[in-house]
Design a protein around this nucleic acid. Structure first.
Lengths: 230, 230
DNA sequence: GTCTATAGCATGATAGAC
DNA sequence: GTCTATCATGCTATAGAC
């Protein structure tokens, strides 16, 4: 079970550098830089800038000159890390997928009580999207323009998350802890609610909603709806 | 109260031509064409094509050449209706706003029972977004890149819709029909759920969910959560 | 009112100096 | 390993024929 946001943050140990090192090692063919230390440090800069600029104006609207200005690179320098603009998408997507999938499953596995399990899945997702908000936002907004293979992967990951929720609901109904209802629809609504946390993050910040408050409210709405009626 | 989707559709009388005529009359300065009949017919073509292409690949990725190919215009011909690419956004946004705001309020005004009113607001929104899906999608995806003034308007319209829901919840709590809870958060979640209908429309079509089924399910989740506890 | 032709510019990508 | 200089392309926008 997830204790609180702060310990989640630590457990996840979302070291960007760590993730980028893994990314570098998997793509030594694409990246021309030989010194791991240098390459990893710069990958972090490139990915950070891309996420920031895409959040501000969209990936297509972001030019590579924009990216260079923001990350402090020159055009030529940048092209040592990618062979074309599309590679930026690949870099960002791949390390995000790894992390997201792993985390959700790690937290839900091993829990048996359906109510606990549902709340944990919701919390894990909302907490994760809080820590990786730029990535979640990027992934959502850019699916449409992704190259075919990555588009399918993105959709598959999303359906996977929804099916984790679906399975928990089904288990709970089978165990008689939840009442019988349309589990597909409820799982979709759950996804929609969790999604809003990273799509409309500024709104929630403005109205002073904390990440824990949000996750628990969503969990409460679901839990209440699933209660067997008297 | 809304009877069913089909009669909603008829009552809305979403005549594209009618809306575009109004749009033409409001912008005779921007549009160089003098014959109303010709202008209106072509505005429909232009708006239709823009929405379709933007849905497929995003507004920035759509070139004016793409738009010409799809709408059957030439570059020069197109520029008789707009003075630059940004004007396309303006055309699309303005007629959408008019229609959306009017409709929701028209349906909810006059209803006194909070439960009825909430369900009606949800239904009106979901039905509306079903009929104007390309516009809602466009509006959501392109807010970021909108020129300042239109960006503010878009955000204002969205908050307005959320506050309609919020007010209904508050009224119901004051009347003792709903139990006391965080109305701001619940209104946000309601918006998030309604929103998913036009953001993930393909998913819902694939899983065979009808627009009425969706709207009623959302209404049911909310209504159930708002029930006073025994 | 609509077309073709083209200007003018910003972009993605490369070559080669250091 | 990083930079500057440059190319080729595709874009928005305009001019002028019909």
């Amino acid at each position: 079970m997830i204790a609180d946001f702060e310990s989640f943050k630590i457990q996840l140990s979302l070291s960007k550098i760590e993730t980028c090192r893994e990314l570098y090692r998997q793509n030594t063919d694409m990246i021309r830089i030989k010194k791991e230390e240098v390459a990893v440090k710069n990958l972090v800069r490139i990915i950070d800038s891309t996420l920031r600029l895409t959040y501000a104006k969209g990936f297509h609207a972001m030019s590579l000159r924009d990216l260079c200005a923001d990350s402090g690179f020159s055009i030529g320098g940048l092209y040592a890390y990618i062979k074309n603009k599309e590679d930026l998408i690949y870099l960002i997507q791949s390390h995000g997928f790894m992390l997201a999938r792993r985390t959700i499953l790690a937290y839900t596995n091993g829990i048996t009580d359906p109510r606990d399990k549902l709340l944990t899945a919701v919390k894990a997702h909302v907490y994760l999207s809080e820590l990786m908000q730029p990535w979640f936002y990027f992934s959502f907004m850019e699916v449409k323009s992704l190259p075919k293979k990555q588009k399918q992967e993105a959709i598959a990951v999303e359906l996977e998350i929804e099916s984790i929720i679906y399975d928990i609901i089904e288990e709970g109904m089978a165990a008689g802890v939840f009442r019988r209802l349309n589990a597909h629809l409820l799982a979709s609504l759950c996804k929609a609610m969790m999604q809003d946390w990273y799509l409309k993050r500024r709104k929630y910040r403005n109205q002073g909603t904390s990440v824990t408050q949000y996750a628990e409210f969503v969990g409460d709405v679901l839990g209440s709806y699933l209660n067997p009626r008297s």
